[in-house]
C-alpha cells in the first residue's frame, strides 16, 4: 500500500517537474516577444511623446503582464524613489529583482543590462538606435527560443513522466 502511494508520488513529482521545464520552454519566446513590444512602446514614448522616463516606464509596466511588466513598472518606481542613483542602477535593480519571475535566460538578461547603460542618458536619435538594437537582439533570442521550444517542450513533458516510471521500476 505504502509502496503504491510512494510510486504515485514519485511519478507525480517528476511529471510536474517535466511540465515546469516544458512551460519555461513555452514561456520564454512569449516573454521575449513581450519585451520587444515593451521596448517598442518605450521608443514611441521617448521619441514621439518626449515623456519623462519614469512615466513611460510606469505606463508600459501597467500594460504588460507578468514579470516582464514588472521590469518596467518597478524600474519606473526606482527612478523616483532611489534618490541619487544613476538610471542604469535603477534599471539593473529592477531586472535583478524580478528576473526569477520570468522564464528568461542569462543571455536575455545580459542584453537588457547592456541596454540599461544607455537608457535615458542620450538624445532621442541615440535612444532610438539603442532600443532598436536591443529589440533586434531579443528577436534573435526569440527565434532561438522558438526552435528550442519545438525541440524540447514535448520532450521534457514526456521525459518527466518516463523518468518517474523508470525510478519506480528501479525501486521495485
Amino acid at each position: 500500500m505504502f509502496k503504491l502511494l510512494g510510486a504515485t508520488l514519485v511519478i507525480a513529482a517528476s511529471t510536474l517537474l517535466g511540465f515546469q521545464i516544458a512551460r519555461n520552454y513555452q514561456n520564454r519566446p512569449l516573454q521575449l516577444r513581450l519585451l520587444q513590444r515593451g521596448l517598442k512602446m518605450l521608443e514611441t514614448e521617448i521619441v514621439y511623446g518626449s515623456v519623462p522616463l519614469y512615466q513611460a516606464m510606469n505606463k508600459i509596466g501597467a500594460r504588460l503582464p507578468g514579470g516582464v511588466g514588472l521590469f518596467f513598472s518597478s524600474a519606473g518606481e526606482n527612478l523616483i524613489t532611489l534618490d541619487g542613483a544613476s538610471t542604469f542602477e535603477c534599471w539593473r535593480a529592477s531586472i535583478e529583482q524580478n528576473f526569477f519571475q520570468t522564464a528568461l535566460k542569462k543571455e536575455d538578461k545580459d542584453l537588457l543590462l547592456q541596454f540599461g547603460h544607455t537608457l535615458g542618458i542620450t538624445d532621442k536619435e541615440d535612444q532610438m538606435k539603442h532600443i532598436q538594437l536591443t529589440v533586434e537582439g531579443l528577436a534573435t533570442e526569440e527565434q532561438i527560443a522558438r526552435e528550442e521550444q519545438s525541440k524540447y517542450e514535448k520532450l521534457s513533458k514526456n521525459l518527466g513522466v518516463l523518468l518517474g516510471i523508470l525510478v519506480v521500476i528501479l525501486m521495485y
Binding site: 515623456v51 519623462p52 522616463l53 519614469y54 527612478l79 537608457l119 542620450t122 532621442k124 541615440d126
Partner: peptide, 20 residues
C-alpha cells in the same frame, strides 16, 4: 556631474534637446 545631469533631467536627457 553624471548624477546631476540625471537628476536635472529626471533620468530623461532625451527631453532636454532644446535646452542642451
Amino acid at each position: 556631474t553624471y548624477k546631476i545631469l540625471n537628476l536635472i533631467s529626471n533620468h530623461s536627457i532625451y527631453r532636454l534637446e532644446e535646452e542642451l
